[in-house]
Design a protein around this nucleic acid. Sequence first.
DNA 1: CTGAAAGCGCTAACAA
DNA 2: TTGTTAGCGCTTTCAG
Lengths: 334, 334
Amino acid sequence: MNKKRISIEDVAHRAKVSITTVSRVLNNVPSVSDKNRGKVEEAIAFLKFKPNVSAQRLARGVNNAIGLVMPGYPGIFHSFYAIEIIRGVGHSCETLKLDMVFHITNGFNPLNASNVGGIIFADIIENRKQVEAALATGTPCIVINNKVDDLDVGYIAIDNYAGGKMAADYLVSLGHKRIATVTGEMNTQSGLQRLEGFRDFLEKKNMPPPKEYIYHGDYSRRCARIAAEQFLGLKNPPTAVFAASDEMALEVIAVILEKGMKVPNDISVIGFDDNPACLYGPVAVTTIRQPLFKMAEEAVRRLNFIISGKSQSIKSEVFQPELVIRDSAAAPKH
Amino acid sequence: MNKKRISIEDVAHRAKVSITTVSRVLNNVPSVSDKNRGKVEEAIAFLKFKPNVSAQRLARGVNNAIGLVMPGYPGIFHSFYAIEIIRGVGHSCETLKLDMVFHITNGFNPLNASNVGGIIFADIIENRKQVEAALATGTPCIVINNKVDDLDVGYIAIDNYAGGKMAADYLVSLGHKRIATVTGEMNTQSGLQRLEGFRDFLEKKNMPPPKEYIYHGDYSRRCARIAAEQFLGLKNPPTAVFAASDEMALEVIAVILEKGMKVPNDISVIGFDDNPACLYGPVAVTTIRQPLFKMAEEAVRRLNFIISGKSQSIKSEVFQPELVIRDSAAAPKH
DNA sequence: CTGAAAGCGCTAACAA
DNA sequence: TTGTTAGCGCTTTCAG
C-alpha cells in the first residue's frame, strides 16, 4: 500500500531502452550490448530498482519460494533438531536465492501450497494429510527424518534404527550389562526407530532391557531429568544410559553429577545428534552424529531441482549415523 | 513448472459465472447471491482450486508476506530468545493470514525487501544498513529488542535497563553484598542495558561490582560455565549471581551443584527471560520475565496495520519486565 | 542485438 | 447482484 513504485518501466525510461532490454539484463541474458547493459545498470542503481517478485513469479509461472513446515508439538521446537533444520534450510535457500516461508503446524493449519513452489516437511507428526493435500496441488514435497514410501514425496532421513543399534553396540562392547534408555517422542519415526534399534540389539545379545530401563521421553530436558532420577532410584540402577538426544544426555549427566556421582566413572551416558553443546558441558559427551544441517541443505537442493524443472522426481536419501567417541562413556567399574 | 493450473477461470466455467463473481466469493464480498456463492464454492471444492498468491499480490499491489530477519551470530540462534520470537511471529502470521519469510543474516545478505510487505528485525546487530535499505524501498520495518529513535521504524522492546536494575535490587534486598553477573552479548542493546541497569543500581548503593564480578558472556551456556567456574575460583567468591538469560542461569546452577554446593543456600542465582526450562531443572529459577512471545505477536500486528493500510506509522512500545520469584535466590548464609 | 505485444492469474473500477 | 475490462509488473515469443 505504501511501497514506492519504481517499475521496470521507469528503468527503461531512464536508460532509454525498452523494458524488454531491462528484463534481459535483469535475467542475465547475454544478448545485450555492453553499452545498453551499462545504461540499464546505471539506471537500476540510480533508481534503486528492485524487481517485483510477485510479478516475476506470475510471469514465469514458477514460485521460487519454498515452504518449511515444522510440527509444533512442545518438545520439538526448543530442540537442536528444529534449529539445525531451520538453519540448514535457511542457508541453502539463501545460496539458491529462494525465499523460505516458515510455517509451524499443529496438524490442522496447512501452509497454503499455492504460496510456494515446493514444501519441506521437517518430520511429519499427525500431519500426513497436509502432505497429501500439497501433493494434490501438484506441489513437490520432501520430508525430513521420515521415510515414507507410499506417497509420491522424496525423503531425507538418517538410519535411526542403525543409530540406536550403534549406541547399544558401543555400550555393550565397553562391557555394560545394565543399559537404560530415555527415548525420544514416541510418535516420531526417529524416536521409535532409535528405541527399536537399541532394543533389538540388546535382545540379540540376550540382554533385553527390563521395562524400568526404558523411559519414554520426548526429547526434552525435563523428561530426561525425570528419567534419570527414576533410573538412579532403582534398586538395581543401570551402569549406562542411552539418551535419544544430546539435550537429554546433558540433562541426565547433570542429574548424575548433582547426586555426587561421576560420569563416566559411575555411569556412562551416550547421546544422539552431535550437538555442539556436547563439548561445553561438564563432560564431553559421546554421541551418535546425525548431519542435520547437511540433511536440510540437501532437502532444499533436491526440491529446487524439481521446482526449477531440472529434474522430474525427488530422489530420496538415507544418511548413515556415526559414532562420536568422547568422554561420557567408558567401561563399567567392577 | 510442475504445478497444475487450475485458475479462477476454470472455476468460473464450472460454476457458470464470471471470474469476477468467483473473485468475489474468494474475497468474501457480500454482494453475491447465495445461489451463485454456492455454485462457486462447489466448483472450488471440486477442483481443489487455490488462488495463485503471486497474482493476488500483484493485482492488489500489496504483499501479505512479512519478513523476519534474525541476526545469525552463533549465540543467538540456539537461544530461547530466537525461538520465542520465531514462534510468536509465526503464530501471529498465521492468525492474520500472512506468510512469514524467514531470513538469517550475517550482516551482509539482506532480505530482498520487494519479496515482502514489511520486515521485522529480531534485534539489529551489525545490520543497521539493512534496515535503512529496506526503509529506502518504502518497506515498513519494525525492530524487536532495540530502541531506535533515529530511523523511521517502530520498535517493540522491553526495558532492559530496568530489568538489570530489578535483578540487582532484589538480590540486594535479600541481603547480598557480593553480587556477580554473567552478561549477554555485548554488542546487543539487551546485553548492554541489562548490565548497565545492574551496575548502576549497585553503584548507587555504594557497592560497585569489582571487575572480577563481571563476566562478559554471550547468552550461551558455554560462557556461563566458564563464568561460573571463574567466580567460584575467586578468593572472595560472590554470594549471588545475575545471569542475563535463563539458559545461562541454568548452567551457572549446574556448575555450582557439580561442585557440591547448594542453590540458593550457598549461592543465589537469578536469570532473565522466564524460560519454561526454569521450572524443570534442579531448582526453580528466580528470573526476570520478558514477554517475548507477546512482543513478537505485537510486532506482527502493528506491522500488519500499516501493510494493510489501516495505519500510517508504527507505534512503538516498551514493555516492562517483571520479577518472578522462585527458589534459586535467597538471603545469604551468615 | 532490440522492441512490440501477448499473456501470467487475479482484483477493482465501472457499467449494466 | 453481475459481468466487462483494464491493468498489476514482469517474461517471453516473435519479428525486425
